[in-house]
């Protein structure tokens, strides 16, 4: 965004500004100004977590290196610790074994936090969807802000994803508690960590598990009753 665009967007159209001064002056409300500065700062200093999963991670590294240079977005500071990161790039296939640490890492990130699902696997399982150890999409476990399709997405596509994320940040307003929940009362609820049982178990689905178990228990009862009925006949 150029300086002119920034001022034009900030300016309140109801208040007249002398001709020829439009590129230098913007009159606006305090709230709008605060939002603009707040988001401008955040959108240009997103620190991604350096966290590669699979093939897409290599394109993520290529994006960070000289030809594509994600430093232009203020994103060159890759942090290894989730506590210092704003953005989790889920770059690759999420397996059932790996989703447990991923959910933990997500819970450890400080708000405001964003998730970018990079590549077909992270979006929906991709070519490995039918695999017994593959999670069909990270959004089954943690909320995702931006999806970047491709297998793997080219660095250009990932850069486009970053721009979409910046747009999303621009749309968040301090005046609207729904779009900035991290200023709400108390900490946000962590995502329940999945359990590695006979298969991966999402604790949020415990009720479905119980219902299914009851259904299978009920089914043999019916069969037995049928046998009894036959025996009586």
């Amino acid at each position: 965004m150029t300086n002119d665009d920034f001022l034009r967007e900030l300016h309140d159209p109801d208040i007249p500004v002398p001709e020829g001064m439009t590129s230098a002056i913007a009159v606006t409300s305090f709230g709008k100004l605060l939002n603009a500065i707040y988001n401008w700062g955040r959108r240009n200093s997103i620190w991604p977590m350096s966290f590669g999963l699979a093939c897409c991670a290599i394109e993520m590294i290529a994006t960070a290196s000289s030809r594509f240079d994600q430093a232009r977005f203020g994103m060159e500071v890759l942090r290894a610790s989730p506590r210092q990161a704003d953005l989790m790039i889920v770059s690759g296939t999420v397996t059932k074994k790996m989703v447990v640490p991923i959910v933990r890492l997500y819970n450890q990130m400080a708000e405001p936090k964003y998730v970018l699902a990079m590549g077909a696997c992270a979006i929906g399982g991709g070519p490995f969807k039918e695999g017994y150890n593959v999670v069909s999409g990270i959004d089954k476990y943690v909320p995702v802000d931006v999806y970047v399709p491709g297998c793997p997405p080219t660095p250009q596509a990932l850069l486009h994803g970053f721009m979409i994320l910046q747009k999303k940040i621009d749309g968040q307003s301090l005046g609207n508690p729904n779009s900035t929940p991290w200023y709400g009362r108390g900490p946000s609820d962590p995502v329940p960590v999945p359990i590695l049982g006979p298969d991966i178990i999402d604790p949020r689905q415990a009720h479905i598990l119980r219902r299914q178990a009851e259904a299978t228990q009920a089914a043999p009862d019916v069969a037995e009753a049928g046998d009894d009925a036959e025996a009586q006949v």
Partner: peptide
């Protein structure tokens, strides 16, 4: 869409009658 054909909407299958009650993961 395989998800729509699965009771959990996910790529999971459990042994018959399995519940979380009293389950201790290894």
């Amino acid at each position: 869409r395989s998800e729509e054909h699965n009771a959990y909407g996910k790529n999971v299958v459990y042994p018959e009658g399995f519940t979380l009650d009293g389950y201790e993961p290894v």
